[in-house]
Design a protein around this nucleic acid. Structure first.
Length: 368
DNA sequence: AATATCCGCAACCGCTCCGAC
DNA sequence: CGTCGGAGCGGTTGCGGATAT
C-alpha cells in the first residue's frame, strides 16, 4: 500500500465521488497500516517483537497458560503482558513450552516410525507427529530435513518415493519423453522428486521397504527369476528381503510399511492384491491415500486398536502371484480392508512403542 | 587464532481449514 | 450460503554453535 501513487491535490479534484470515497478509504487504511481488501493482520506486525524468545517471555506464557489454560491466542499477548503476535505465542507454546514435549535426541525407534509414516503419508508432519508422543510436527520436519532425508540419499534411496534412486531414474526413463532421463535429472537436486511424472498403472516398477534398515548398509542386490530384484539389508536377527512385486506408485509404501516379514508368502500376496485393488479402481493413488488419511485420523480417536493381523484376500493365491488372477477376483471393497489393514499396522507399531516407552504414553502427557 | 563453511533448530510466513455467525 | 477470524499446517528463513580450513 505504501508504494501506491496517490492522486495529487490537483488530480484529486478530477476524481468522481466514488473514486474520492475509495481514495478516502485508502488514506485511512494507510494511516492505520491495514488493507482495503481481505482480512486485516492478526496484530500490528510492525510493533511486535520477533526473533528468539527470552526466559522472561517464556515465563509469561507459561504463567498465562497455567492460570487461564489454552484459549484465544490473539488475546494472550495483551493479557500476559507480551509484545508478541498471538500466533507467535501459540507457536512458542506448541513447539517448545508444552510440558509434554521431549527435547532429547530422536531414538532409532522414533526414526523408524518417521520413516514408515513418511513412506505412507508423505510430508504430513502433523499426522506423523501424532504418532510420536512428545514430538511436534516441527521437530519431525526438522529431523527429517536435516538427518533422515540425507541419510536416505546417502544410501541411494529417493526420500520421496523411498525407492533406490537408480530405479526411480529407470522408471523415469521408461515413462519420460526424454530417451535418457539421467541426462536431465540430477537425483541430488530434487529434480526427480519434484518433476517425475506419476507412473501409469501399467508401468512396472519395483517395490522396496526401508523400515529398520536406516543404520544398516544394504548387503546385496540379487536377481530373482520370479520377482526380479531382491534387496537384502543386514538386521540384528534376520535379513530383510524386499521383493519386486510390480507395484507402481506411492501405495508401495502402504504395503511395505504394513508388513514385518516382507518376504513371506502372505505378505507378498497381500501386497500384490492390495496393488491390484487400487489399480483396478477408477480412482487414483492420491484418492486412495487421501481416504487412508481420513481413516487414520478417525482411528486416532478410537480407544481400542483393531485386531492384529493382515488381510490376505482369499482370492489371491500364495506367491508367485500373477496380476491377472488377483485383478479378476478382487472386488472394489477390498481396498478399504487393505486400508484398514494398513491402519492396523500403524496402531500395532504404536502399541510396540507404548510397551517400550510406557512413561510417555501415560495419560498426563495428553492432557494439555 | 581467525575465518569460512556447515549444520541444526527455532521461529516466521503465507496459505488452508473449519467453526461461528 | 457467504463472510469472518482463529487455529493449524507445511515450507522457508535466519541465527548461533560446531567444525573445517
Amino acid at each position: 500500500m505504501s508504494n501506491i501513487n496517490l492522486p495529487t491535490e490537483k488530480g484529486h479534484e478530477k476524481l468522481s465521488d466514488c473514486a474520492r470515497d475509495l481514495y478516502a478509504v485508502m488514506q485511512v487504511c494507510l494511516f492505520y497500516n491495514c488493507t482495503v481488501m481481505g482480512r486485516p493482520p492478526c496484530c500490528d506486525k510492525s510493533n511486535v517483537k520477533k526473533g528468539p524468545w527470552t526466559p522472561e517471555e517464556d515465563a509469561k506464557v507459561l504463567a498465562y497458560v497455567a492460570n487461564h489454560g489454552i484459549g484465544n491466542w490473539t488475546l494472550v499477548p495483551e493479557k500476559a503482558g507480551l509484545n508478541r503476535c498471538g500466533k507467535s505465542c501459540r507457536l512458542r507454546w506448541t513447539n517448545y513450552l508444552r510440558p509434554d514435549l521431549k527435547h532429547d535426541a530422536f531414538t532409532p525407534q522414533e526414526e523408524n516410525h518417521i520413516l514408515v509414516l513418511h513412506q505412507a503419508v508423505g510430508s504430513r508432519w502433523s499426522l506423523i507427529a501424532k504418532h510420536l508422543p512428545g514430538r511436534t510436527d516441527n521437530d519431525v520436519k526438522n529431523h527429517w530435513n536435516t538427518k533422515l532425508r540425507k541419510k536416505l540419499m546417502k544410501m541411494g534411496i529417493d526420500p520421496v518415493t523411498h525407492k533406490p534412486i537408480s530405479h526411480v531414474l529407470t522408471d523415469f526413463g521408461n515413462i519420460s519423453p526424454f530417451p535418457n532421463s539421467r541426462n536431465h535429472a540430477d537425483p541430488l537436486n530434487g529434480f526427480v522428486n519434484n518433476f517425475m511424472p506419476k507412473p501409469e498403472a501399467s508401468v512396472v516398477t519395483t517395490e522396496y521397504a526401508i523400515p529398520t534398515m536406516l543404520s544398516r548398509p544394504m548387503l546385496e542386490e540379487v536377481q530373482d527369476n520370479h520377482f526380479g530384484n531382491n534387496y537384502v539389508w543386514e538386521n540384528a536377527e534376520t535379513s530383510f528381503q524386499v521383493t519386486n512385486q510390480e507395484i507402481s506408485s506411492p501405495l508401495t509404501s502402504l504395503a511395505s510399511c504394513h508388513i514385518t516379514d516382507l518376504s513371506s508368502p502372505q505378505s507378498l500376496a497381500w501386497q500384490s492384491s492390495l496393488l491390484q485393488s487400487v489399480q483396478s479402481s477408477s480412482s487414483g493413488w492420491n484418492d486412495f491415500l487421501l481416504s487412508d488419511l481420513s481413516l487414520l485420523t478417525d482411528l486416532e480417536q478410537q480407544e481400542e486398536p483393531k485386531a492384529q493381523g493382515m488381510v490376505v484376500p482369499s482370492s489371491c493365491p500364495p506367491v508367485p502371484v500373477q496380476n491377472e488372477k488377483c485383478e479378476n477376483n478382487f472386488s472394489e471393497g477390498s481396498s478399504s480392508s487393505a486400508v484398514d489393514s494398513f491402519v492396523d499396522s500403524i496402531l500395532n507399531q504404536d502399541k510396540e512403542m507404548q510397551s517400550e516407552f510406557p512413561q510417555i504414553f501415560s495419560d498426563e502427557y495428553f492432557n494439555y
